[in-house]
């Protein structure tokens, strides 16, 4: 793989690196695991980059590889790590913007998301990223109807966790 391609990849990746951070945010709940998954996704993106032809948007392509790595390729279980203070850390920064109840609700929300299955996490991630059901179904390889049904179940589940 030549230097030119490497340079092109890194520059483009830099602009979109938030996508990968967000995938890691959904699938991990401590900084070490976050960094580890981030690295694996970046390696997978780079390995696949020579085949990227630009017929889809780079960001779409990154969503796909990011999720595939987190759900399938990443060897370490993304769920075994005990819930830690990562959520709290992130929210402390923003705490001034919310009143306490909202902050509390969000904390519970993220905690609930971390308890979902890998597939469900993928669905909620794409939902939060404003992807439509067509894109969600294509990314995960399930039908649109099933994506809708599953998403409604997750939403209900999250709501019940918050309002028992």
């Amino acid at each position: 793989m030549n230097k030119e391609l490497e340079h092109k990849f890194i520059s483009e990746f830099q602009q979109h690196q938030n996508i990968i951070h967000k995938v890691c945010r959904i699938y991990t709940n401590n900084q070490d695991a976050h960094n580890d998954l981030f690295q694996e996704i970046t390696i997978q993106l780079w390995k696949a980059y020579p085949k990227f032809r630009g017929d889809s948007k780079l960001s779409t392509w990154m969503y796909r590889i990011g999720l595939n790595t987190a759900i399938t390729l990443y060897r370490k279980s993304t769920r075994t790590v005990k819930t830690q203070d990562f959520d709290t850390v992130l929210h402390k920064i923003q705490s001034s913007e919310y009143d306490n109840t909202e902050e509390e609700q969000l904390k519970l929300m993220y905690k609930a998301i971390h308890q979902l299955s890998d597939i469900d996490k993928g669905l909620i991630f794409l939902y939060l990223e404003d992807k439509n059901y067509k894109e969600i179904s294509e990314t995960l390889g399930i039908s649109e109807v099933n994506a809708r049904v599953k998403m409604n179940r997750i939403k209900t589940r999250l709501k019940t966790i918050l309002n028992p």
């Binding site: 890194i10 830099q14 690295q39 694996e40 390696i43 790595t69 399938t72 390729l73």
Partner: peptide
């Protein structure tokens, strides 16, 4: 990022 892409993958595949 440069350093990262030169690291070894540990994927299941």
């Amino acid at each position: 990022i440069y350093k990262m892409i030169h690291k070894k993958s540990s994927s299941i595949v």
